[in-house]
Design a protein around this nucleic acid. Structure first.
Lengths: 243, 243
DNA sequence: TCAGTTTATTGGTCTAGACCAAACTTAAGG
DNA sequence: CCTTAAGTTTGGTCTAGACCAATAAACTGA
């Protein structure tokens, strides 16, 4: 097969050609790519070589796969500021998406040790645990798992958790301010998160952990957010005032 | 080959075994993994299958490769808050790393159109462009490319850019406050960034874009940071006060 | 026309190599 | 002891299949 000068490997050439087709909108957002076998024929390469190229486009967040259906050009991303406090439903709607939330489970159980430690709770105690999936335009993009400290947030199993948790902290537990500690890592999505996000096991994802405390450092809530990496763009804004 | 119940594919089984060995410190941070051919023999699989498992561990940020030398368990990550303003040298040193910075190039040239637009400058004009590589413990982790708006930051080619750019904005251009707009995306590292980071082309990375303006919205600087994804953990903290 | 079954299509997983090239190790010579 | 060359080891790239399984499309019968 022929290649241009700056991508002498076959997979790199294919990756660059497809990238340019996506960037120039020759392949439109949401469009299905030709099948793997068609692309192999067109570029005169084998499927392992093609899939190396596709994997890199996938990691770049340019394409995504639907199991046994095909590869698609990614749609626009949800811009997400993990430090803001308006609800998912609100900022997704503001950006022209159609957001949805589905509770997967709510139960009271013993948390893993690292979560018990982060919550500063008795590791033998049970905590209320809420798992929910968020979608935009009927495409699941986020699995979140919330843990509530039984000491600082008692009786959570009796509250309506479909409303704002921040509201519960303010109104039911009378907090005057909250501190959010957030970390972001790349991760490999495993089941059940991968299945909830309708992606295959092993796909790249972003894991966001948020610990919510009061201003005395007492921990109330521990959240894990597993995101499809191709569905969001993290953003933030800060101001530096010179004194 | 044999596998346990929850990872019925060979590559998934290998991935999970190696993950557990890393998590339990049976494979210590920095340790070299057995060679690919040794692992193939041990697990009775072929190299493509093994490399599928290794690729997922790499995306997870658990292992990294050195070209033609071997696979290694990742060392601890630099915790990075993109919204803070202390220098890289300072927060890396605070975390017990040995930071280094190397200027790769400094030149004045016509920026790409999307950068000219972000800088709100005449697209035909030239801007000072600085490229530098940051390392910790002699391991390159970040390539940054800084563009300075010639309208708001004239004569930058005559300044000492090895010192604090923020200091230059404050002292030379008399700004009273700065606004930082930051976005974070996963990306596929290509050359020359991949080479600077001593990783192979196509490796997963994180791209962070920061636009620096004054409080009137006038843009001064446009920064692109290309990070080894396995070398950093993004963190942030915010406070929400209820009124 | 609809429901159920069958067939086809698509990506997913895997084997079994081959060969390349960067990096390291070893050996030889000055 | 140092430099250079040769050999070895390692990950990188690629071919050439095979077979699986999820999903869609097509077909058939009521």
């Amino acid at each position: 097969m022929t290649k241009n000068a700056n991508s002498h490997f076959a997979y790199a050439y294919v990756r660059d050609v497809l990238t340019e087709q996506i960037r120039s909108a020759e392949l439109a957002a949401g469009a299905q790519l030709p099948t793997e076998r068609e692309l192999c024929e067109r570029f005169a390469i084998t499927r392992p070589t093609l899939r190396q190229a596709l994997a890199q486009l996938e990691n770049e967040g340019l394409i995504f796969r639907q199991n046994r259906i095909g590869w698609f050009v990614c749609l626009r991303k949800l811009r997400y500021n993990p430090m803001r406090h308006i609800s998912f439903l609100q900022y997704a709607a503001e950006q022209g998406f159609q957001p949805q939330t589905k509770v997967v489970s709510q139960e009271k159980l013993k948390p893993p040790q690292h979560i018990a430690e982060a919550l500063q709770m008795d590791p033998r105690a049970h905590a209320v645990h809420l798992t929910r999936v968020r979608s935009v335009d009927e495409r699941p993009v986020l699995v979140e798992r919330l843990w509530f400290n039984p000491k600082t947030m008692p009786d959570m199993e009796q509250k309506d958790l479909s409303s704002s948790i921040t509201g519960i902290l303010k109104n039911d537990f009378h907090l005057k301010s909250l501190v959010f500690d957030v970390t972001v890592d790349t991760t490999c999505l495993l089941n059940p998160h991968a299945a909830c996000l309708e992606t295959n096991e092993g796909a790249l994802g972003l894991k966001l952990v948020r610990v919510i405390s009061d201003n005395k450092g007492q921990v109330f809530e521990y959240d894990e957010e597993y995101w499809r990496h191709d569905a969001l763009q993290i953003e933030n804004q800060a101001t530096l005032a010179f004194t």
